[in-house]
Amino acid sequence: MRYRLLGALMAASALAQAEIQTQEIPYTAADGTKLVGYYAYDDAIEGKRPGVVVVHEWWGLNDYAKSRARDLAGLGYSALAIDMYGEGKNTEHPKDAMSFMQAAMADADAAKARFNAGVDLLKQQEQTEAAKLAAIGYCMGGKVVLDMARQGVPLEGVVSFHGALATQTRAAPGSVKARVLVEHGSADSMVSADDVAELNAEMVRAGADYQFVNLPGAKHGFTNPGADRFQEKGVDVAYNKEADERSWKDMQRFLDEAFAQ
C-alpha cells in the first residue's frame, strides 16, 4: 500500500512539473530561403500525437502566431508555427505587412514550397505522428491553408480563421483531399460577399468536405486579442471574444473528427 501511494505521489509530482515545451527551429525552403519555426508540445503526454501547422497573419511570425502553437500544444497536439516570410520576420506596420505578404504570395509554387518545408519540419519532430497532420491559418495564413487544400496537399484538415478567400486558381473537382473549415466574420470588410459566394460554389464543385461558419458581427482579425490597436493605423480589424471562443471550439471539434478517421 505504501509503495502504491509513493508511486501515485511521484506520478502526480511528474505531472505537476510537466509543461508546454517550446523552441525555435531554423529550417530552409527549397529555394534556399532561411526560415524559423516555433515548435510547441506538452511534455506530459507520452508518445506521438497528431501535428498541426500554424500559418501566421500578414504581420508575420509574431507572438500571436506563437501563442496559437502553444494553445494547440495544450490541446495535446504537436504544433509548429511556420515562417512564410523568412528569418522569422514580422512587423506591426500595415505597409510593411502588405509588402511582405505580396512578396511571399507572388509565386504560388514558392509559397507552397515554404509551407511544405514547415510540414516536413513538423513531421521530423519526435512527438509528431507524421500520418496525422492538419493546418490552421489566420488572415493571410487562412488563404495559405485554403490554397494548400485547393492544391491537394495531403492533410487531414485545414481551418481558415478570418482568412482571405479569393483565389486565382480554383480547386478542380476531386482535388481537395483535406477537410475544410472556414471561420468567417460577417462584418469582415476585407472579404466581399462575392468572395464568400465564390468560395462556397468552388468547394461544392470540387466535392470538398467543407464547412463554412459565419460569425455574426465579427470583423477581420476577430481571434487576435491585440487586433484593436491596429485600428489607429487604419486597419479595419477588431477582436471579438465571443467569435474567438466559438471558432476555437469549432476547430477543436473539427480536428477531433478529422484525426479520428
Rank of each mutant, 00 (worst) to 15 (best):
L121I: 03
G142H: 04
A130D: 07
Q151V: 00
E87M: 09
G86R: 07
Y85V: 00
D107M: 08
A149R: 01
A106F: 01
M140F: 14
T128D: 07
L146K: 12
K123Y: 10
D109H: 06
K123D: 09
G118V: 00
M101V: 05
M84E: 04
V145C: 03
G86N: 06
K143P: 00
R114C: 04
G142E: 05
D120P: 01
A103K: 15
A108N: 08
G142W: 01
A106K: 11
T91A: 10
A131H: 09
A103D: 12
A108G: 05
G142S: 10
K89I: 04
G88Q: 09
Q151C: 03
A104P: 06
A104L: 09
M105T: 14
V119I: 15
D107I: 04
M84I: 13
K89F: 00
Y138R: 08
A108Y: 00
D120G: 02
T128P: 01
D109I: 03
K123W: 09
Q125F: 06
Q125G: 04
M101N: 09
K95V: 08
D109V: 11
L122D: 05
S99P: 01
M101C: 05
N116Y: 00
L133T: 12
A106D: 13
I136P: 01
L122Y: 05
A103R: 13
M148R: 15
G88F: 08
L122N: 04
T91N: 10
T91P: 10
A131D: 15
K123T: 11
A97I: 07
A135V: 06
A108T: 14
A135W: 03
Q102H: 12
A103G: 01
A111Y: 03
G141W: 00
A117E: 03
K89R: 15
A149E: 03
Q127Y: 08
V119N: 03
E92L: 05
Q151Y: 07
F100Y: 15
L122I: 01
M101L: 13
R114F: 01
L122A: 08
K143V: 00
I136T: 13
L133Q: 07
V119K: 12
G86F: 09
L121D: 02
H93A: 13
L133I: 13
Y138D: 02
D83C: 04
A103N: 11
V119P: 01
Q102M: 14
Y85F: 15
L121M: 12
A103L: 07
S99C: 01
M84T: 03
Y138A: 03
E129W: 04
K123P: 06
R114P: 03
D120S: 13
Q151T: 11
T128H: 08
A104K: 08
G118A: 07
A117C: 05
Q151S: 14
A134W: 09
F100M: 15
T128N: 11
K95F: 00
A111I: 04
I136H: 01
M84A: 06
D109Q: 14
Q124H: 10
Q102G: 11
N90Q: 13
C139Q: 04
